[in-house]
């Protein structure tokens, strides 16, 4: 049965009525009207739905809303803005990474947490941190260039 949940998303608190097992993704998209993250697989395999939960990248497509509790949710839209971009957003534009762009959440949100914790990573470390994320258009080369560029910007 539907219950009331309070969600802290990008610094704002929202109230959502939902089944306890409804994945967070559907609250963010359907109830809060955010056009990110995206549904890619629903089975934790691609990353298109990635958001930060208290700074940790998680897959919102398999995270039941009832488990979120008072954790702070940050989506790609909350990571930065055109006037105050996250270095990865800047790097993504400068390297012209995206083709269809549907996978962007996974790469940027995962890389943002990784670069926050790991300064001056090697290429191998970057690749390992991003392993498992999917990009079907094959923009892997540009993704790696952008993450390296952002890493340099973040010192």
């Amino acid at each position: 049965m539907a219950q009331k949940y309070s969600l802290n998303v990008n610094g704002k608190v929202h109230s959502v009525d939902a089944d306890p097992d409804m994945p967070l993704l559907y609250a963010l998209r359907g109830d809060l009207g955010l056009n990110n993250p995206h549904f890619g697989c629903g089975v934790d395999q691609c990353g298109a739905c990635t958001v930060h939960l208290d700074g940790r990248p998680i897959r919102s497509c398999t995270t039941p809303i009832s488990t979120v509790r008072d954790a702070k949710v940050v989506t790609l839209a909350g990571l930065g803005s055109p006037s105050s971009p996250h270095p990865l957003q800047t790097a993504w534009v400068e390297e012209q990474v995206s083709q269809c762009g549907y996978c962007t959440n996974g790469w940027i949100m995962t890389a943002a947490a990784f670069l926050r914790d790991k300064k001056k990573p090697t290429e191998a470390e970057i690749k390992n941190a991003l392993a498992g994320l999917k990009c079907r258009c094959g923009t892997h080369m540009a993704i790696l260039r952008a993450v390296k560029r952002a890493a340099a910007m973040m010192g």
């Binding site: 990110n36 995206h38 989506t75 762009g101 962007t104």
Partner: peptide, 14 residues
Amino acid sequence: DIALKVFCRQDFVT
């Protein structure tokens, strides 16, 4: 449109 995508200012069909 890449900036629109990374700042979530552009809708996909979804």
